[in-house]
Design a protein around this nucleic acid. Sequence first.
DNA 1: TCGATTTGACCGGG
DNA 2: CCCGGTCAAATCGA
Length: 251
Amino acid sequence: MASSCSESERVEQVISELSRGRDIADRIRVMLRQTGSDGSVQILVRQLLDTFNHSLTVLTHAAADDSGEVSQAAKSEDSCKPPPPPKDRRGCYKRKRSSDTTIKMSSDLCEDGHAWRKYGQKAILNAKHPRSYFRCTHKFDQGCQASKQVQQIQDDPPLYRTTYNGQHTCDKSPLNHHHILPTPPDSSIIWSFNRPVDSVKQEEVQIKSPSEDDYMSPFLDLSGDVYSCTASTHSIEDVVGSIEDFLNFNP
DNA sequence: TCGATTTGACCGGG
DNA sequence: CCCGGTCAAATCGA
């Protein structure tokens, strides 16, 4: 892992190229449908689309994992502070399972329409930059369970990964945030891992989809460089793991 | 003064 | 036992 910075840049380029390939394949699929072409050809094109989507998923995951190689030499112990009083916080919180998680890759920290309150920051092993933890400002007054993590995964150009957890149940405008971004999302990649009962996200898919047919890939492709993946029964790790297995046949 | 952020400690899953 | 996620006291700033 000597040159992971340039490596992540290359990964981004590959992601971009794969996106184009996926779009082209998608257009071919539409044309085949319109011309009533051979069903077996359509299946092949569908598989091609899946391959593009799988590859994009793996690369995004790899870019995130690979984004740092720097030492965690920031563990400086402060010895000049008085010892804090002992606190018993056993059982004071439960770690959440990663259900209903949306990962957004973005070149800037654009506003998503919700009020967030930062509650923590942590240096992550093998990551250059610390990860910041946010929860909805209305967590306590309205019980909103939404939270997000933001981590810079690349320096030049800056690339941020924002992981959204949970749904906003607060009064603020719910969940149109992908559509009300002040800047066009063409520099972002959004991966949504949702259950099919998640009507809000499904609506998002419908809005973004080019209103076509009944393409039944588990990977729903959206317009532009925004992608969504529906994982009906799997966790993100399961999906990514199976994709990685799949890609072992396509190195 | 009060809400937001920072930061080190604590907890628990893997 | 390591490391990521969360808590909460200290600090900041409007």
